[in-house]
Design a protein around this nucleic acid. Structure first.
Length: 542
RNA sequence: GCGCCCGUAGCUCAACUGGAUAGAGCAACUGCCUUCUAAGCAGUAGGCUACAGGUUCGAGUCCUGUCGGGCGUACCA
């Protein structure tokens, strides 16, 4: 529809001006239905260029507009100079037919065709189970990846982790302490040790497999490794349950192993962007607009996390991705400018790296915010959350809001299987259609659908809503904002429920029945495609 | 102090990135099931978009300032 309108406007434009540097033609869907089905503000944008008032320009454009009256039923100039179009049913029938042919592929576009995109997300170190805090990251990253896939991109999902470092050592020591306790030995509890129940489980597994043989083990690595394996096993299980499948797990250690980290320091030194001071190596981030330089290697010889981060991102770009997206919580955002400066210094095009920031999740339990900390073990794991409210609801809630705003996850609201819970509204619409279809197949007289029988307002506006789908998917991908898709699917469900209320499917003249059933099949197709992108099931019965 | 994000109906949030009369859900009130799922539909009420300026045909959206909240601001990750 947009393509058609753009082309006829372009044509009219050519007739009224020879100017070549013209603003882009933007077709929007007016908020109010009184303003038609589509509108353009091109006349207002042209006012300056052509030095004429917007309404006069609009008039000229309309006078020169040539269109097929079966597709467009009305063109009006309104307000300060909008040109409003009314779409004729003929175009709707034609496009509806196209949706039907596309079926499970409807909504796919070539917007990111042949692009290689990497999304890095979750990236939690294996020190404990995934918590609600990681949930938003995980679901957001995965869904953005799905959106890109629907736009024709090839997408890799990557999980970056660190299994060296102080935290992991403390983790190992915590396991050892629990292990010794299980053997009835006295054990020193490490400073800042991990208090979670899962540590005891890991210790128990070690006791089962090794009995007492680790009693005098001085090296923590056995414990550390056991912990890492067990925790990763759990994390993968949790992700799997959330419908998330990673393509790579990237170990931070490998950028040390292959010398990339040293090379980064070397190259920065060569460009006089790194220097030694007080026994540490510093990165001249002041050159990139920061008010302080940043330590890359501590005086202990240990690098800070920024250094491997830079090397890692360099590695990503070397792998040839057109676009790399990091999904980061608002608390980690500070690392990002340094990574970008590093990449710039190393001569990379930093526009290929992008960060998707999301704000915090507040878990609401019994109307009160619930504070969490992994180390203190008073967290709610993602698994517990899913046990409580289900996988679909979990994904949905994390996606429901713009990444940019704080998310309040109200467990009571999520648990309610009824009206309070917005997921069911969508799934119910889908299930309802399938219920109708089951009955239709049993009882209805067979006939060929003929879309031109669709005349009712509810029918026409339902079709119009369905037509927006590909644009919504593309725009959700462009903005990296899955909630746009959710808002849209709500519109689809609402338009369907209204139609259901206004029109009967069975008991009408057979051709009309068959046509309405065909319409509903496309509705359920759009709902299913949308829910698939969100990673949420589309049940046929509820 | 400085940087980033946010402030929209009683509550949780939208608003196609500058468009026309700011919309949904929940909560409140009123209608609608002897026929395809009432987990639904229709309606009422609820707003000076935190505040003050500015930019222009046009501002919830952009710029400046003020107030209020969140997160950062490490030789922690």
């Amino acid at each position: 529809m947009k393509t058609y309108l753009t082309s006829i406007i372009q044509q009219a434009l050519g007739k009224i001006t020879s100017e070549t540097d013209l603003p882009e033609i933007i077709i929007e869907k007016p908020r109010s239905p009184e303003h038609g089905d589509a509108a353009t503000n091109i006349a207002m944008l042209l006012a300056k260029v052509l030095k004429n008032n917007p309404r006069a320009i609009a008039q000229q454009l309309v006078d020169n507009l040539e269109y097929n009256p079966e597709y467009i039923s009305g063109v009006e100039i309104a307000g300060p100079g909008f040109i409003n179009f009314r779409v004729a049913p003929g175009l709707l029938y034609k496009l509806l037919e196209e949706i039907r042919t596309s079926g499970p592929n409807y909504g796919k576009t070539d917007r990111y065709d042949s692009k290689n995109i990497q999304v890095e997300f979750v990236s939690a170190n294996p020190t404990g189970p995934l918590t609600v805090g990681h949930g938003r990251n995980a679901v957001l990253g995965d869904t953005v990846a799905r959106l890109f896939e629907w736009c024709g991109a090839r997408v890799d999902r990557e999980y970056y982790f660190n299994n060296a470092g102080r935290q992991m050592r403390v983790l190992g020591e915590s396991v050892r302490a629990r292990y010794l306790e299980l053997l009835g030995e006295k054990a020193d509890w490490p400073d800042g040790g991990y208090e979670g129940e899962y540590i005891i489980d890991i210790a128990r597994e070690l006791k089962d497999s090794h009995d007492e043989s680790l009693k005098n083990e001085t090296d923590v690595s056995v414990f550390k490794q056991a912990a890492e394996e067990a925790i990763f096993r759990d994390i993968k299980k949790t992700l799997d349950r959330m419908n998330i499948r990673m393509d790579h797990f990237f170990n931070e250690y490998s950028v040390y192993e292959n010398g990339a980290v040293d090379q980064v320091v070397e190259q920065l030194r060569e460009q006089d962007l790194a220097y030694d001071q007080d026994g540490a190596v510093w990165f001249k981030t002041t050159r990139f607009g920061k008010d302080k330089d940043t330590v890359l290697v501590k005086s202990t010889g240990e690098p800070t996390y920024r250094l491997p981060d830079i090397a890692y991102h360099q590695d990503k770009l070397k792998r040839g991705y057109d676009l790399c997206i990091d999904v980061l919580g608002a608390d980690h955002i500070d690392t990002f400018p340094d990574v970008m400066s590093g990449l710039e210094a190393l001569g990379y095009d930093k526009s290929r790296v992008e960060v998707l920031v999301y704000q915090f999740v507040t878990l609401m339990k019994e109307g009160k915010p619930y504070k969490m900390s992994t180390r203190k073990a008073n967290f709610v794991t993602l698994d517990e959350l899913m046990d409580e409210v289900g996988e679909d609801v979990t994904r949905f809630f994390f996606l429901m809001r713009s990444p940019n705003t704080h998310l309040e996850f109200d467990i009571a609201e999520a648990k309610e299987a009824g009206e309070k819970n917005p997921v069911f509204y969508l799934q119910y619409a889908h299930a309802r259609i399938h219920s109708i279809k089951r009955k239709f197949v049993e009882t209805a007289e067979k006939a060929d659908p003929d879309f031109s029988l669709l005349q009712h307002d509810s029918e026409l506006s339902l079709i119009k809503t369905l037509l927006d789908f590909p644009d919504v998917v593309a725009s959700a991908a462009d903005h990296r904002e899955p909630h746009r898709l959710i808002n849209y699917l709500n519109e689809v469900a609402a338009a369907f429920h209204k139609f259901y209320h206004d029109c009967r499917i069975m008991g009408e003249e057979p051709r009309l029945s068959a046509t309405r059933m065909a319409l509903l099949e496309t509705v359920s197709q759009v709902l299913r495609n949308g829910l698939t992108i969100l990673g949420i099931s589309a049940p046929e019965r509820m």
